[in-house]
Simulated scan of single mutants.
Amino acid sequence: MTQLTLAPLSPAVAPALILLGRDDAGKAHASWFDGEDAAPAKNAAKLMGMAALAVEGDELRDLAIRLPKGKLFTSGRAFVPFVKGETFERLLNHLPEPLKARPVMIPQPTRASGQETSANAPADPTKPVPERPAASRPEDWSKIAVGSLVLAREGRDDGFFEARVVEVISEGVYRLSWRDWLDYPPFTRKAEQIALLHPKAPA
C-alpha cells in the first residue's frame, strides 16, 4: 500500500509572523501572517502598538496554527481577532524581556465628527474621549434593524465578533460593519450566518 506524504506549506503561505496585544479592555488579541504579509504586518504592529513575533521553532509554529489568520487594511493597520488567554500567555513567554516587562496594548481608534483620529496623534487629556454610541440588542430576529448589534464571523473556522447592522438589504439579508475594527469594510451576511447577543451579555 502506498503511503501518502503531505507536502509542507509553502513559506509564502505558512505562518511567518504573529501580532499580539491586549485592547483597552484587557482582552487578548493575536493572529498570524504569512511570509508575503510579514513586512507590512510589522509596520501594522508599530502603528497599533502591538508586539510582532517571528515564527521560529516548533513551539511557535504549533501556537501559530492555532491562531486565526490576520488581515491587513489599506490604512496600514491590521485585523487581529481575540484569542484564548492561555494561548496568549504562552505567546508572551516568547517575547524579549523588555516587552514582557510592559503591557502590550492595542490603542483603540476614536472618532470625532465621524472621522477616525490619527493613530500617531497624541491624545489631548483636556478633551473627553467620544463614547461609542449604544446599539440595540434585538431579542428576536424580527427586531433586527439598522443600528442593531449582532454577532458575525469572517470565515467558517473563525469565532463570532460584534457587528453593527448598517443596512437591511432585503428580508433576512443585512449589511454589517465590525464594531471594533473600524478599518474593515462593510460586508453582507444572511440571517442564518449571524447570531443574536444575550440581552444580559456585557458590552
Rank of each mutant, 00 (worst) to 15 (best):
T2E: 14
L4W: 09
L4C: 09
L6N: 03
A12R: 12
L17A: 04
L19C: 08
L19R: 07
L20S: 00
L20F: 02
G21Q: 00
D23Y: 00
G26K: 04
K27Y: 06
F33V: 00
D37T: 06
D37I: 00
A38Q: 11
A39Y: 08
A41H: 01
A41M: 01
K42C: 10
A44K: 00
K46Y: 07
K46F: 07
M48P: 08
M50G: 10
A54V: 00
A54I: 00
E56T: 11
D58M: 11
L60E: 06
R61P: 03
D62V: 04
I65G: 02
R66H: 08
R66N: 09
K71A: 13
T74S: 15
T74E: 15
A78P: 01
P81I: 04
V83Y: 02
G85F: 05
F88S: 01
F88D: 07
F88E: 06
L91Y: 03
H94W: 04
H94V: 03
L95R: 02
P96V: 01
P96W: 01
E97A: 14
L99P: 01
L99I: 02
L99R: 11
K100F: 01
A101G: 12
P103R: 01
V104I: 13
A112K: 09
S113L: 11
S113D: 12
G114W: 03
G114K: 02
T117D: 15
A121R: 00
D124M: 03
D124W: 00
P125E: 12
P125Q: 10
T126V: 09
K127P: 05
K127L: 14
V129D: 12
P130W: 02
E131I: 08
R132D: 15
R132C: 04
A135Q: 10
R137S: 07
P138K: 06
E139Q: 15
W141A: 14
S142E: 14
S142R: 11
V146S: 05
G155A: 14
F160K: 02
F161V: 14
E162Q: 14
V166H: 04
E167L: 13
V168A: 13
V168R: 14
V173C: 13
V173T: 12
V173S: 14
S177A: 14
T188M: 10
T188S: 06
K190Y: 10
Q193K: 11
A195K: 14
A195R: 15
L196D: 05
L196I: 03
P202I: 02
